[in-house]
Design a binder for these strands. Structure first.
Length: 303
DNA sequence: AAATCGGGCAACCGCGCGCAG
DNA sequence: CCTGCGCGCGGTTGCCCGATT
């Protein structure tokens, strides 16, 4: 038995919203707030499903929404976060004031994923397409014979000369990368906003769980915690795919054998995540230009 | 000028989760 | 513990409009 419909579909209007409907919804929400969406249509005098009202409000009518084009900084942010989170649009949108998950999702699907492909980067794994092709052992599709312009071409699916592709030193298998990505998502899902981070928490470092990792000696500072996310992003193959977004110190994360180390790290993180404001952590991370600029002064993934 | 194509975007759909009774 | 309900999310659809033929 399926779930009953949230409203009487026969008596509910669908399709584009009219200015009159927008005005009614806006008037109601500004006077009464949002509250229970299922009752909003009736109270606001709308023949719409409550769900439709919520969507219209959150994606279009909500105050402080940005309706202008995405900036280069926002693009960089989306790409960086997508490398870390995958298609968790709501989490990504949370880091972009004035943008909705629908905005981000549409922009990704229509613009950014194509841009990445044009640069020889797989928009799902954020790894060079040439490398993925090698990984899956197929030679069915080859780059154009000339392959002259690495980043200059805009039309080929394989514009990047393999010789110029960012070198991958970690050699992490694809499934392992996905596993790591899931762990990053797990960390962020365990978000406990508003709770001050414990100083002790910052001593928990990804590198501590890696055998023979020289970086394990790194001081227990907030920067080190941010580094965990940098490294995690690298582990999922994201950052390195579009250039040296982070410095080379994270490159040694990969290689075989750290699955258990990674799990131990995640377990430890989950033990203490309740003490941690992950949103703030991400905000701090992303406020640091060094994260996605690799210390440079301009964007390194895109144009 | 008309027809066709393709991109962009708003909106819908279905599912999962959390909460209350 | 079970069930019903509301909310939020991600995936998908369909319409609109500009570009191209």
């Amino acid at each position: 038995m399926g779930r009953p419909p949230c409203c009487d579909k026969a008596n509910v209007k669908k399709g584009p919203w009219t200015p009159e409907e927008d005005a009614k919804l806006l008037a109601y929400t500004s006077n009464h707030g949002t509250g229970n969406w299922t009752s909003v249509p009736q109270r606001a005098g709308l023949k719409r499903c409550g769900k439709s009202c919520r969507l219209r409000y959150t994606n279009y009518l909500r105050p402080n929404l940005k309706h202008e084009n995405f900036t280069q900084e926002e693009e960089d942010l989306i790409v960086t976060l997508h490398a870390m989170l995958g298609s968790r649009w709501s989490l990504i949108a949370n880091q972009l004031p004035g943008r909705t998950d629908n905005d981000v999702k549409n922009y990704w699907n229509t613009k950014l994923s194509k841009k990445l492909r044009q640069r020889g980067i797989d928009p799902i794994t954020h790894r060079p397409i040439t490398e993925l092709m090698q990984s899956i052992g197929t030679l069915a599709i080859r780059p154009p014979p000339t392959a002259a312009g690495a980043s200059s071409s805009t039309s080929s699916y394989f514009p990047m000369n393999p010789a110029e592709a960012p070198a991958f030193q970690d050699n992490v298998p694809y499934h392992h990368a996905l596993h790591q990505q899931q762990q990053v998502i797990t960390l962020l899902d365990a978000d406990a906003p508003g709770v001050a981070a414990s100083p002790d928490h910052h001593q928990l470092k990804w590198s501590d769980f890696l055998a023979d990792d020289a970086a394990a000696l790194e001081a227990a500072t907030p920067q080190a915690v941010l580094g965990q996310y940098q490294e995690a992003a690298v582990a999922v193959g994201g950052a390195r795919a579009y250039g040296d977004i982070v410095d080379g110190t994270a490159a040694d994360l990969g290689g075989g054998g750290e699955d258990s180390a990674g799990s131990a790290f995640i377990d430890a993180m989950l033990d203490s995540d309740k003490e941690m404001g992950v949103d703030q952590l991400i905000a701090d991370l992303l406020a640091d230009p060094a994260y996605y600029y690799g210390g440079g002064s301009s964007s390194t993934w895109g144009c």
